[in-house]
Design a binder for these strands. Structure first.
Lengths: 341, 341
DNA sequence: CTGAAAGCGCTAACAT
DNA sequence: ATGTTAGCGCTTTCAG
């Protein structure tokens, strides 16, 4: 008797109604009399019946599955986002099917996989999609939202924080703190987040007639960021380093303090980006730009669902402001309040 | 023309064969002549056809979806496991549907959700399931593997590391290092992992005629562990604390060093459990028991798939050995090698 | 409001 | 080896 699935027909038989009556009772926009509904519900209860989502999906064309493409679960920001996203989608009756983007892998292959599952929508986290791929999704009528990544000139929705403004604010803060030799270990410059933060930082310096003493791509990798930090200290003698995200900043902080014996922030100030929970831990106390992850996820969900319900809706590019969070890894200018002097 | 799905019938028409011929070409254990296969494949290519996984699932009774129930993505161990699990399952043609166990939530409700999606199997990570729930899964013919958690007397497969032996090894190591006042901030004692590590630790002490000076449940929560650590230092004056997992150990380490100004390990040694990547970072240098996460995931996948293929297979309880990893948060006994004196 | 009937896209006998 | 046929479990016309 194991594995014997109970179907709507079983329930119908027991309740003494037609199978379609059962269906109606379990369909939100249904029309069934209170009496039938009651009978059906009792029979279903007794039998332990639950509608088969897959069968329903075949008819309605809606699987209530959202595909999530994600690459770096090592960076705490993404598990957090995944957690928030899964909860928010669950509240709307959707669930998340995970697709890990192995780095060497063909993106087209992965998209095939996704489409095979008839997902109702796709969100990419920290993963770029070529315009060819987004075009395929559009052709298949499947909305895509890029989370924490933008794409120039592509017809995709995206939700990011104000990365350019954030980078600029860091420059202003550091300058106000009396630093004069500013270095930047950027996020991967192949990603919009990496580029925008770097551009904002450069713009902030330029506005004060300054320019960075060093600027290197950290590729969003800890090992690489650590190596780059060592070089930068040796060769450029910076008194402050803006690091493209917290994940790398932790590695940089460790490298300076432990390997190089540098006093942070007395000798060198370090600033990160994201404000993951670990940034607040005493061992790091990382001064950083907070990405409003809750609102970013909320925006991602509402954008995606809106697009699922109205496929012809134009793409949305949402950019949410973030704040500089003051801690102990960077010297603090006197009189600095609310992100301004 | 957007959203127009291409079906096997479309391909059949274009290739000049029957629809079932198309199906056969796309079914692994098929029987089709090279000529037909070729024609079909070309037509499919031209049309951009891909089989509908959901329709296939209805017939075969296999969705190729594995439900993952997970609760604490804050503890780095679980995102890592998720990542490994998703990749391993993908290699076998399965994908992971995520179910976040919100703590206040009814577990039965969540299981309903899972079963609705006709998942082929379930893995729970750091989440217990009542015997009633595992019974429901068994009745539905859906195999379950508990990852990093056991269940006494339940008919479920589980994959854990040798938690009891690990706890015992920690006790021996600490004793050999000359510590005499050993405290334990355990993992949640409602979980087998928390209990087993605590029991092993106590057994290790007992074997030497000792007993802990303090033993408190840390509930696997950082805030709680930090508070408990403060109390323990004040009231029990331990010279070493074994913490139930790395996640809590980081908080304890921070509390001792930063809040309490204690020199670790000169005054107090700290040992964790898991060996998440952060444990190796210089800021922590956490001495800890490594859980063989790669092998644990591999065992989880093979157990689950074996059970999917042969439902009558008896449940497996797999326990993998872990090693004590020596770093700088605990005083090191002279002559300690390979986990032994 | 309700039942009968027609599929959704596909696989799996069953013939040929 | 291939086509024909009968469903998988459900939603959705369509009558009544």
């Amino acid at each position: 008797m194991t594995g014997m699935r109970i179907t709507a027909a079983d329930v119908a038989r027991r309740a003494g109604v037609s199978q379609s009556a059962v269906s109606r009772v379990f369909t939100p926009g249904a029309s069934a009399s209170a009496r039938t509904a009651e009978k059906v519900r009792r029979a279903a209860e007794e039998l332990g019946y639950r509608p088969n989502v897959l069968a329903r999906a075949m008819i309605t064309g809606r699987s209530r599955i959202i595909g999530l493409i994600v690459a770096y679960l090592e960076n705490q920001f993404y598990p957090l986002a995944l957690q928030l996203l899964a909860r928010a989608l669950k509240a709307e009756g959707y669930h998340v099917l995970v697709f890990m983007a192995s780095n060497g892998e063909d993106a087209d292959k992965m998209l095939d996989d996704l489409l095979d599952y008839q997902v109702d929508g796709i969100v990419t986290a920290s993963v770029g999609m070529s315009n060819a791929l987004t075009a395929r999704c559009a052709a298949a009528g499947i909305p895509v939202v890029m989370f924490n990544r933008g794409q120039d000139g592509a017809d995709v929705s995206s939700v990011t924080s104000a990365n350019r403004a954030g980078g600029q604010q860091v420059a202003e803060f550091l300058l106000a703190g009396g630093h004069r030799r500013l270095g930047h270990i950027s996020g991967w410059l192949g990603a919009s987040t990496g580029r925008d933060r770097a551009a904002g930082f450069a713009a902030g310096l330029a506005a004060a007639g300054a320019e960075p003493v060093a600027l290197v791509d950290g590729l969003y990798r800890q090992d690489h960021a650590a190596a780059v930090a060592r070089d930068m200290i040796r060769n450029a003698n910076p008194d402050a380093i803006f690091v493209g995200n917290d994940h790398m900043a932790f590695a940089v902080l460790d490298t300076l303090r432990t390997d190089l014996g540098i006093d942070v922030p007395a000798e060198v100030s370090i600033i990160g980006y994201d404000d993951v929970p670990m940034a607040a831990w005493p061992a790091y106390g990382l001064t950083t730009v907070r990405q409003p992850i809750n609102r970013m996820v909320a925006a991602t969900v509402s954008t995606l669902l809106a697009q699922i319900e109205a496929p012809e809706r134009p793409v949305a590019r949402i950019e949410l402001a973030g704040d500089l969070i003051l801690r102990t890894s960077a010297r603090q200018p006197e009189g600095w309040h609310d992100g301004r002097l």
